[in-house]
Amino acid sequence: MRKSIVAAVTALAIAGGGAVTVVATPGTAQAAPASSKIKDKQRRLGEVYWYDAAKGFGYITYRLAGGAYGNLFTHHSLIEKPWKMEQGDIVSFIIAKGPAGYDVATGVKEIADA
């Protein structure tokens, strides 16, 4: 089921115990795998653009400063609590450098329906 961004921000605010802007910081950073290096500890909101469970990877779209959009690669090993990730799911994540030097989404969490 597709979740609204407003519900996602509300759920993230409740989980973080405070006010949230579009680039949310819920107060606790998640550890990144040893193969990645966290760029910053801010949790961000995004939407699953494409994910193939059989292949174990996909892409998350998120809003950049200035209104543009970016896509980040994510792998099943970077998802905190695996669930049936589907296109349109709203997620929170941390941006890190992957082993190949590209930005990746790590600590990916599903934002539950609010």
Rank of each mutant, 00 (worst) to 15 (best):
T61L: 12
G16F: 07
I111K: 00
V48S: 01
G46M: 08
V9H: 01
A29I: 11
A112Y: 04
D52I: 08
Y59V: 00
A32L: 09
T74G: 00
D103F: 11
D89K: 01
L78K: 05
G70R: 00
D89S: 04
I90T: 07
A11G: 10
L78Y: 15
I14F: 02
I79Q: 04
E47C: 10
Y49D: 15
L78I: 04
A24W: 01
I79M: 06
I38M: 14
A54T: 10
H76F: 04
A53E: 15
Q42W: 02
T25I: 01
Y102V: 05
P33L: 14
A15S: 05
F73I: 05
D113K: 14
D89C: 08
P99A: 14
T28P: 01
A100W: 07
P82Q: 12
S4K: 06
A11E: 07
Y102R: 10
A32I: 13
P26Q: 04
Q30W: 10
S92G: 14
V6K: 04
A8K: 10
V91K: 00
A31V: 15
A105M: 05
A31R: 14
Y62N: 09
G88V: 01
K81N: 12
K41P: 00
T74H: 02
R43C: 03
V9T: 14
K3H: 05
T10E: 02
V22W: 08
A15C: 01
E86Y: 00
A7F: 02
Y59R: 15
A65T: 14
G70Q: 06
D89P: 03
I5R: 08
E86F: 02
H75E: 06
V108I: 10
P82T: 11
A54F: 04
I111S: 09
Y51G: 05
M85F: 02
G18V: 00
A8Y: 01
A54K: 15
S35L: 09
A68N: 04
G101F: 12
E47Y: 04
S35Q: 11
R63L: 13
K84F: 02
R44Q: 15
D40L: 08
A31S: 13
Q87Y: 00
A24C: 07
A24F: 02
G70S: 09
S92M: 13
I38G: 06
V91A: 03
A8Q: 09
A65L: 10
G27N: 13
S36R: 06
Y51W: 14
L64C: 09
Y51I: 12
E80W: 00
Y62Q: 06
L45Q: 05
L78Q: 13
K97L: 11
A31Y: 10
G46A: 08
Q87S: 08
G66E: 01
E47T: 15
G88D: 11
I79L: 05
E110Y: 08
P99L: 03
V23D: 15
S35W: 09
A114V: 09
K37I: 10
V20G: 01
I5F: 06
Y69E: 14
Y69V: 10
K39P: 04
V48H: 02
Y49R: 13
I14Y: 03
A32R: 09
T61Q: 14
A114D: 13
S92E: 07
G67C: 09
H75G: 03
P26V: 11
R2L: 08
I5E: 08
D40R: 13
N71P: 00
